[in-house]
């Protein structure tokens, strides 16, 4: 464990909690893409299948359980509890455009052709595009509440910190996970234009972020 990965996990947890609290306190999921949240729940489910078979550390196990619980709680709030506030017509991204390439690629490019490895690879590739429905919704509605932008900021920052973690681990322990690194770089690239908007718009106290 190094400071970059710990900071990354904390940012990831903060992002998930920001979104969950926003939905719970405002009792509304307006402006939130339910599809992205479903994809994140799938990412955690397919990645943490070794939750009961491989023990790494108490931290690892606890964080996996927390991420699974919070992501399913978020999906529950969106599609069950506050479903009457869910504007599905804005959440119109075609998930098959993401799932088909990701499933195909995880069968082509993986470390081992075993169910657990393929599902892990699928979760890594899926995570890199899981935010697309949310970013698509923001470009479609042309705006995002500031709390949603804070959520996206921490979510993007988490994987950027993981890249720093991979650089650190490569130089200190020769660790190199090609699939995770390539996918993580692609994922972070998707956030770059958002980071620009976030810094120029939201942090200047503009409250709501309206796209040009």
């Amino acid at each position: 464990m190094n400071i970059f990965r710990l900071a990354g996990d904390v940012c990831h947890l903060v992002a998930i909690i920001i979104l969950l609290l926003k939905i719970w306190r405002s009792r509304s999921c307006a402006g939130i893409s339910g599809k992205s949240q479903v994809l994140f729940a799938i990412v955690f489910t397919t990645r943490y299948l070794d939750l009961f078979t491989v023990f790494i550390s108490p931290y690892n196990t606890i964080m996996k359980v927390v991420f699974l619980a919070l992501s399913y709680a978020t999906v529950y709030l969106i599609y069950m509890r506050f479903r009457n506030t869910f504007n599905s017509e804005n959440d119109s991204f075609r998930l098959e455009f993401l799932l088909v390439p990701v499933i195909g690629l995880s069968f082509l490019e993986n470390y081992a052709f075993t169910p657990l490895e393929i599902l892990w690879t699928f979760s890594i590739f899926l995570e890199s595009v899981a935010i697309m429905p949310q970013l698509f919704m923001i470009t479609k509605t042309g705006e995002a509440e500031s709390i949603t932008t804070h959520y996206l900021f921490f979510l993007g920052l988490y994987r950027a910190l993981y890249i720093a973690n991979w650089v650190w681990r490569y130089h200190t322990e020769g660790f190199f996970d090609q699939i995770a690194v390539v996918s993580g770089v692609v994922q972070t690239i998707f956030y770059i234009d958002f980071f620009y908007l976030y810094v120029t718009k939201v942090l200047r106290g503009r409250g709501k972020m309206t796209l040009p």
Partner: peptide, 10 residues
């Protein structure tokens, strides 16, 4: 090296 099996990252 390529990593398989033990995955210690979240």
């Amino acid at each position: 090296e390529r990593v398989t099996g033990r995955k210690d990252e979240l």
